[in-house]
Amino acid sequence: MRALLSGYYGKGNGGDEALLATLLQMLPSHVTPVVLSGNPQQTIQQYGVEACDRMSVPSIINSLRSCDALIWGGGSLIQDATSAASPFYYGGLMALAQKIGLKTIAWAQGIGPLQRGQTRWMAKNLFASCTKVSVRDQVSAGLLTQWNIPYFLAPDPVWAMESKPTPGLWDLPAPRVAVTLRSHSDLTPSRLALLTRALVDFQKATQTFIILLPFQRSRDYAIAEAIQPALGDASQIICIENPQVLKGVFRGVEMAIGMRLHSLIMAASEGCRCFALSYDPKINRLMEDTEMPGWDLVNLPEDANSISTAWIEHYANGQALSSDKIKFLLDRAAIHQAILQDGLSIS
């Protein structure tokens, strides 16, 4: 069986690459993956799979015709908050696959926000026609319940992604703290300046080494570059493309401060204390599910001392997830693998 994998792959986003790596890890052995990628050659080289250009219509058509199934890879693919066009790209692929008669699986989805009536109508009809559907949060589950569409609910599959050692990590001074910020309208210049001052104070108080960890180089690196001069020799920017090696960073840090959803999931799954800076409801859902401390960026304290004090307190006295809680989440995340086994069974 051949399955076409569709997601935000090959775009240099560590979270989406982690979803792809986990999907490949969970695919049944009888399934040959073909990945729609923004950088097919890199995807081929990194994962050893077939890949084709996600924006080439002839390549997409040929791939669909050569495959038996289409899998919407994990994440918030069907949402119209950041792009009105994006859900129609993914929706068009799914509609075409269903019309051709392929098995279709919506895997580990985070549905919404859906602000436009047309997008909601499209999403409802496409999810209803899928062979199998799994979602990663209660809000998505509630939407499918409202639409009377069967689904399975499980934690984000990246909880279960295998990690690999990060070369050179243990050569850096210890103890270490990882910081992952991303560009966003809520991270205004004044808030970035506040966070930078708070990081400097936090670093001096804890004598930690700060690892600035861009998850998407094109969007995150400039922010890391803006922060790094204030921290000087007590910090380093590290860019890692392999998502399993990226997850391995969190084996060697004491705490993670992050905006990126999958930076927090990776850190928490490796037993690292986490502090969230939320710009999106999906971060708040993770905070609620794991009792993770943090702030919405729009409600960030207005003085750097309050921020650094909260970080210092969590560094000194905060708790990582218990091993039992991590095991529970890993076991539950395996539901996404069972969906693939069932939906892609040979019949």
Rank of each mutant, 00 (worst) to 15 (best):
D324N: 11
L77K: 04
L321K: 10
L70R: 05
I326T: 05
N317C: 12
S308K: 01
M259N: 09
R197M: 12
F152N: 15
A51I: 00
H30N: 13
Q118R: 15
A256M: 13
Y9N: 04
V135M: 01
R116L: 12
A141T: 01
T131C: 06
V49I: 02
A81K: 14
T104F: 00
P28H: 10
I237L: 05
M122A: 06
F215H: 12
L195P: 11
V35E: 01
E313K: 14
W107Q: 04
V200K: 12
C130H: 13
P33N: 06
W107I: 06
P175A: 06
I326W: 08
F202P: 08
Y8I: 05
R136D: 05
G15L: 05
E50I: 00
M26C: 09
P301L: 04
A178Q: 03
A304V: 02
K247G: 09
T196L: 06
D303V: 02
D156M: 02
D16Y: 07
C239E: 14
A205K: 14
I257S: 05
M1F: 08
R273D: 03
R191C: 10
A154E: 12
L340E: 09
I71L: 09
N299F: 06
R2E: 05
A338P: 00
A256C: 14
G232W: 12
I227V: 15
Q228P: 09
S63H: 07
G142V: 10
G14L: 13
V34R: 12
G12C: 02
P243A: 03
F127C: 10
I307F: 09
S63C: 06
D331G: 08
G258F: 03
G168K: 13
V57C: 03
I61Y: 11
M161S: 09
L93N: 07
A234Y: 12
G48N: 05
L246Q: 14
Q341P: 06
V253I: 09
S83D: 08
Y151S: 07
M259D: 10
F209G: 02
W121E: 14
W295Q: 05
P87V: 02
F88V: 00
